[in-house]
Amino acid sequence: MTPAIQTEDLAFSHLGSGLPALAEVALLTPEGAAIALLGPSGAGKTTLLTLLDGRLRGWHGRATVLGLALDPDRAPPLARRADTGFIFQEFALVERSTVLRNVLNGRLARMEFFRALLARPSPNDVTIARTALEDCGIADLAERRVDSLSGGQRQRVAIARCLAQEPRLILADEPVSNLDPVRAAEILSLLTRAARKRGATTVFSSHQPELARRFAERVIGMRNGRIVFDMATEDLSEDATVQLYQDAENPLSPLLQVVQ
């Protein structure tokens, strides 16, 4: 079986930065899995997700996503972009548009050119969008404007938009960081459940080990741009998560020696 994600020796540094945002990152991710990226702020989680989404330039190493080798100097081919969906931390919705119209935006890469250009979705596009709304529990909000919704409802719209894209890989950057613990658990539950229903691979980043344990099959710990552990969720100990967040600015802390 072709892995959903395979990387070797990924490295990247932001201009003017003395520290690498990514260093020697190697991943091998099976299709259909739910994976959590865990780590403190600045660990490299967002940078890694952006790279896997094909939006990062100037990185080094090798990365293959859904069987396509990524190029550090150019975006993936248009025909392949819809296969990877991205859920942003700040939702990235059209605030003055309706929920249904926002979700239909996720169909643009799947639409015929002139339908996308004229914003005229087919009946099939509308059916797929409404199914995504149902799976996210917001079918009754289809005609509401996004700027009238709560934070939790907006996140559901962002997830529905991604699902309507029919991606094979879903990348979610801190998808519940703005929500209270109860709402956060609800959102991750519906995201991973909907992805599993569609056979899609999910990679979400988080600061919360308890959510990673509940909703991921595998947890990858990152710090200072490096992977410091990669293990099945049931093997993740409390000590490993505590150490992950201790001395986060010290790249030579004992954690690297303990779990590698």
Rank of each mutant, 00 (worst) to 15 (best):
Q155S: 06
M231T: 15
P72N: 06
C136V: 09
S253P: 07
T50H: 14
A164N: 09
G225T: 11
G221M: 14
S97H: 15
S189C: 08
L37E: 00
T233L: 08
Q165C: 03
T201V: 13
R115V: 07
F229C: 14
R168N: 02
G152S: 08
L179A: 06
T192F: 07
S189D: 13
P72W: 03
H14S: 09
G106N: 12
R101V: 08
F88G: 01
V242T: 13
L70C: 04
D83R: 12
G152D: 09
L28F: 08
T64P: 04
D83F: 01
G225V: 11
P251V: 05
Q165I: 06
T127V: 05
Q165K: 08
Q153R: 06
I159G: 05
V25N: 01
R213H: 10
C162W: 04
M1N: 14
L133Q: 07
I220F: 13
V157Y: 02
H14F: 10
T29V: 14
L179F: 04
L141A: 08
V203Y: 10
I35G: 02
V176T: 15
L169Y: 00
G151E: 03
H14D: 05
P20S: 05
R101W: 11
V176H: 01
L118S: 13
W59K: 00
S237F: 06
S97E: 15
I220A: 14
E31K: 11
R110W: 09
V94W: 15
R183Y: 08
L70V: 02
M111A: 12
Q6K: 06
A34V: 08
A132S: 10
G67A: 07
R193S: 13
T192K: 10
L15N: 04
